[in-house]
Nucleic acid binder design. Structure first.
Lengths: 105, 105
DNA sequence: CGAGTTCATCGTATATTGACGATGGACGAT
DNA sequence: ATCGTCCATCGTCAATATACGATGAACTCG
């Protein structure tokens, strides 16, 4: 947990290696077609029950759940419990940041 | 086909799974900080001898060479032989495509 | 030719990923 | 309390990724 500080403008410019790590983190999370599919699904749906996702991705429920966890750990999506379901949705900030990082490559 | 590849309706729209695969391919290649560092180095330098890259990345020569191969296989960079050196440079088209794909997420 | 340089590839060891079935926890409904 | 649903997690296996030293190919120069 080195830096979960502000994402706003800072006096000390973020060190390069940190930026590389940040980009790599997002990229790694998107480095699998199933996860790209899931993210796009969530972007389109707005939000989506896990079950819906499972039924749309040709993978076992356990596998989809793992991919969801990877996306969640990367910060790209969020899961809100809405018993007895879990409602997943995009984290718009993270996606925005991802786009910004990539576009400023 | 395409002098101008619009995002509008096409006779054969690229299947979703293919786009997912394309994005995932680029993302996977960028899914390691060292490779992000290398790519940015090349973007800044214009082009760069392999030796220069090795000296700037704190990894063994063999490891850097492997990372270069990953980036090359993903199409993001190119290596031109300029004996006895190899001069690496970015593939601007691929980077552009990457940016486009991500920004249209 | 022989020596030196530059880089890719091989071989290898360890770590991580991807996929699945099975299990278990939390909850609503009966 | 018991059942069924929804989902995360565990355990496991095969496959892939990461890192390195060692080797070898290709080239230049003396």
């Amino acid at each position: 947990m080195s830096t979960l500080k502000t994402h706003t403008i800072e006096t000390t410019p973020k060190p390069l290696s940190e930026i590389h790590h940040e980009i790599a983190g997002y990229a790694k999370a998107l480095g699998h077609p199933a996860r790209v599919a899931i993210l796009r699904l969530l972007i389109e749906c707005g939000d989506c029950m896990c079950g819906n996702i499972v039924s749309r991705i040709p993978l076992a429920q356990a596998t989809v759940s793992q991919h969801l966890k990877v996306l969640k750990d990367a910060g790209l999506i969020r899961g809100e419990i809405d018993p007895p379901r879990v409602c997943y949705c995009v984290n718009p900030e993270a996606v925005k940041q991802l786009k910004k990082l990539i576009s400023s490559l």
